[in-house]
Amino acid sequence: MIYLGIIEDEPLMLQSIKESFALIPNVKVTLEAESMEECQEELTDDLPLNMLFLDINLPGLSGLHGIHFLKERRPDLDIIMLTNKDDSDHIFKALCAGAVSYISKKKASPRVLQDALFTVSRGGSYMSPGIARKVIGHFARPNGARKAKLTPRQMQIVELLVDGLSYKMIADELKIGVETVRDHIKKIYKSLEVNSKAQVIRKRMDGEI
């Protein structure tokens, strides 16, 4: 079951997201808020929530800064950013903070919202095409940095992270335990001097691994 939250200050956009999932039986909206401050009041410990659409440009505390609060309260929460800002700086700040997907509001049709939600629920990531091109363009720049050295198993895990697989999916693919995957990830973070999956992916795409 997907327990969905929506933090969006534009009433029409919020309503559009709700209507996109109203007739889908395995999705239930459990949190609605128009600001991070309202979310902080409503996000109780017993509230079921495993997926969230988050507007990056909220009044008061921005969605970008709100990611840190949300990940502290719910480390396993999958956050899909909604934005009118598609510049590279905002994209990478959101991804490095812990967001797993990034959608342009201009392209946020019901089908796009549904595709994004179910792609993320399967352990993948979703980006609007225009935003994806910006990410690829950033990663494609020349880079002469020294490559970090990882073990063959760690490199396998990095490649699967780049492919968008979750820890559980990586464990199944490599026929190892989830905790073993977590141990490898910790060692990868230490070797690369990073602290997030997005940073690992960025280093791989930059040719630093």
Rank of each mutant, 00 (worst) to 15 (best):
A33L: 00
I201C: 11
D45C: 06
E32K: 12
K107G: 00
I209A: 04
K85A: 04
L150S: 12
D206Y: 06
R202P: 10
L192F: 11
A94I: 12
G124M: 02
K175N: 15
K18Q: 14
G5Q: 09
G98Y: 00
E19R: 12
L14R: 15
E19L: 10
E159V: 07
G60A: 01
E193K: 00
M205R: 09
M169W: 06
D55V: 04
M81E: 11
L58K: 05
I170Y: 05
S125K: 12
E208M: 12
A132H: 07
L14Y: 06
F69L: 15
R182K: 14
L47V: 12
L95R: 00
D45E: 15
M169T: 10
R182G: 03
N26W: 02
I188K: 07
Y102E: 01
P142L: 14
R202T: 11
T151K: 10
L58T: 12
K134H: 11
K85N: 02
V158M: 02
L49W: 10
A97N: 10
T119H: 14
R204L: 03
D76L: 05
A145W: 09
L174A: 02
K28C: 04
F118D: 07
D45I: 13
V200L: 14
L47Y: 05
D163G: 00
A132K: 14
A99V: 09
I7G: 10
D206T: 02
M36F: 10
S128K: 11
H184C: 04
I7H: 10
E208F: 09
K187Y: 08
Y167V: 04
S166M: 07
L192V: 07
Q15P: 06
P48T: 12
K105C: 06
I67P: 10
L52D: 11
V100R: 07
Y3R: 07
G66S: 01
G123D: 13
L61M: 04
K149A: 11
D9P: 08
I188D: 09
D78T: 03
D86P: 03
V27N: 08
P129L: 02
N26Y: 01
A148I: 08
G144D: 11
K175W: 14
V200K: 12
H138S: 09
M127C: 06
L14C: 07
Q40L: 10
G177I: 13
M51W: 01
S121E: 02
I80M: 15
E159N: 15
